[in-house]
Design a protein around this nucleic acid. Structure first.
Length: 249
DNA sequence: AATCAGTGCAACCGCCGGTCT
DNA sequence: GAGACCGGCGGTTGCACTGAT
């Protein structure tokens, strides 16, 4: 696809003669060299000091979504799509948190991809499960999102992943944390290097994989799913547990 | 070849919460 | 404590591209 720099001059000059619209290659170079020298903070004063005729917010956006090192460009893989769908099922439109779990992708990119591709397909966790069950015998499906823990229809625990999930679930139930919100919970999880293996597409190992944690979180703590509010204050204990968990892994 | 509608995505905008003065 | 400032977030816009007619 043609670079946008070669296309429109959208917006033209904005308020106070500040340049708007598509960034040029020269502007990109100025921004990158400035950020490399001075860091990616103080966006307000960045334009004046870097010689850019842009507002600070525009500079920040350009850096974060396009110029920052480590940004993946190009097609979003099927694994990444699955991950986006799962996380969106859990978190809703919290794009920055979702992006934080998908290395190299920005919230803007994920949001765009969702709005233009995935939302139209309106895939659910169940759809994903069916797809994955058919595609690989070695891949465990997530339970339906609405399944409550301990319900009478719950199948017997058998696989190591399921046992691990159960133990994680029990621990949370026993050491429930009232202050725990979604963001804190996800901050416990290490960012994955490899989406396919790190995010539970292969669940056949003996410790709670991330998807299990997500699901337990959803079942136990997400009020929209009917999770109960917990009366506890022991966030430290959960952090300790996480540290042990990561050591074991 | 021309026109039109749909699509993809970079960029902008308004709002909000945290920090500083 | 109050107001100003700033960074971050999610929603929306606008335009080039693409395919259908």
């Amino acid at each position: 696809m043609m670079e946008r720099n070669e296309r429109s001059e959208r917006g033209g000059k904005g308020k106070g003669n500040v340049q708007r619209g598509t960034w040029t290659a020269e502007e990109d170079i100025k921004l990158v060299s400035y950020v490399k020298a001075h860091g990616d903070k103080k966006w307000r004063e960045l334009p004046a000091k870097s010689g850019l005729n842009r507002c600070g917010r525009s500079c920040r956006l350009r850096w974060l979504n396009y110029l920052r090192p480590g940004i993946k460009r190009g097609n979003i893989s099927e694994d990444e799509e699955h991950l986006i769908i799962r996380l969106h099922n859990l978190l809703g439109n919290r794009w920055s948190i979702i992006a934080g779990r998908i290395p190299g992708r920005t919230d803007n990119e994920i949001k765009n991809h969702w709005n233009t591709h995935l939302s139209k397909r309106s895939l659910s966790i169940d759809d994903l499960n069916r797809k994955q069950t058919h595609s690989s015998d070695n891949v465990s499906a997530l339970p339906p999102a609405q399944t409550a823990p301990g319900s009478s229809t719950e199948p017997p625990v058998s696989t190591p992943a399921e046992q691990a999930r159960d133990s994680w679930s029990s621990w949370i139930l026993e050491n429930a944390v009232s202050e725990l919100d979604t963001e804190q919970f996800f901050s416990f999880l290490p960012v994955s290097d490899s989406v396919g293996t790190d995010f539970g597409l292969d669940l056949d190992f003996g410790f709670p994989c991330h998807d299990s944690k997500f699901e337990v979180y959803r079942e136990c703590l997400d009020p929209q799913i009917g999770g109960e509010a917990f009366e506890s204050e022991d966030l430290e204990q959960l952090l300790d547990f996480q540290a042990k968990l990561l050591d074991t892994e």
